[in-house]
Simulated scan of single mutants.
Amino acid sequence: MFPDDIQASAIAVIQEALKAGVMVATAESCTGGLVSGALTAIAGSSAALDRGFVTYSNEAKAELLGVPDDLLAQFGAVSEPVARAMALGAIERSRASASVSITGVAGPGGGSEDKPVGLVHFAAVGPNGAVVHVERRFGDIGREAVRLESVRVALALLLDAVST
Results as ranks from 00 to 15, higher is better:
130 A>T: 12
98 A>L: 07
126 G>M: 06
17 A>T: 08
41 A>S: 13
33 G>C: 03
71 L>Q: 15
23 M>D: 13
82 V>I: 10
91 I>K: 05
122 F>I: 04
59 E>K: 14
142 G>E: 14
125 V>P: 01
53 F>N: 09
146 V>S: 01
142 G>P: 11
53 F>W: 12
137 R>N: 04
103 T>C: 01
33 G>I: 03
83 A>L: 13
145 A>P: 01
77 A>M: 03
31 T>L: 11
74 Q>F: 04
128 N>K: 15
92 E>Y: 06
55 T>E: 07
138 F>Q: 00
74 Q>M: 05
55 T>F: 01
128 N>Y: 12
26 T>E: 05
32 G>W: 05
114 D>A: 15
28 E>R: 04
71 L>T: 15
16 E>D: 11
97 S>Y: 03
22 V>W: 09
107 G>K: 03
43 A>Q: 07
44 G>R: 07
40 T>H: 07
99 S>A: 15
36 S>V: 15
136 R>W: 00
55 T>S: 02
83 A>I: 13
85 A>P: 03
26 T>I: 05
61 K>G: 02
123 A>W: 14
100 V>G: 00
119 L>W: 00
73 A>Q: 10
16 E>K: 15
66 G>Y: 03
34 L>R: 08
60 A>R: 11
68 P>S: 14
27 A>N: 02
27 A>F: 08
112 S>K: 14
29 S>F: 00
106 A>P: 00
60 A>G: 05
124 A>Y: 10
19 K>T: 15
42 I>Q: 11
41 A>H: 07
22 V>L: 11
62 A>K: 11
68 P>K: 10
106 A>N: 11
23 M>H: 12
120 V>P: 01
84 R>L: 10
58 N>L: 06
105 V>S: 03
112 S>E: 13
67 V>F: 00
83 A>Y: 10
82 V>W: 10
81 P>C: 09
141 I>E: 04
110 G>N: 10
107 G>C: 11
27 A>P: 01
72 L>R: 12
45 S>M: 12
92 E>S: 09
93 R>Y: 04
121 H>Y: 12
57 S>L: 08
87 A>V: 04
31 T>W: 00
57 S>I: 06
19 K>S: 14
23 M>L: 11
117 V>I: 05
121 H>E: 06
85 A>E: 12
140 D>Y: 00
133 H>M: 15
36 S>A: 12
19 K>C: 07
32 G>Y: 08
105 V>L: 04
59 E>G: 14
103 T>N: 02
66 G>I: 08
35 V>A: 11
36 S>L: 09
52 G>F: 03
75 F>T: 10
14 I>V: 15
12 A>L: 14
143 R>H: 07
81 P>G: 11
141 I>M: 12
101 S>H: 01
44 G>Y: 08
12 A>N: 07
85 A>Q: 04
142 G>N: 15
39 L>H: 06
64 L>T: 03
115 K>Q: 14
87 A>W: 03
82 V>T: 12
109 G>T: 15
138 F>K: 00
96 A>T: 02
60 A>N: 04
22 V>H: 15
69 D>Q: 13
127 P>K: 13
39 L>Y: 06
134 V>F: 03
28 E>M: 10
25 A>G: 09
75 F>E: 08
119 L>P: 00
132 V>P: 02
56 Y>K: 12
73 A>H: 09
108 P>N: 06
113 E>P: 07
99 S>V: 09
64 L>W: 01
72 L>E: 10
44 G>S: 13
89 G>T: 13
104 G>V: 07
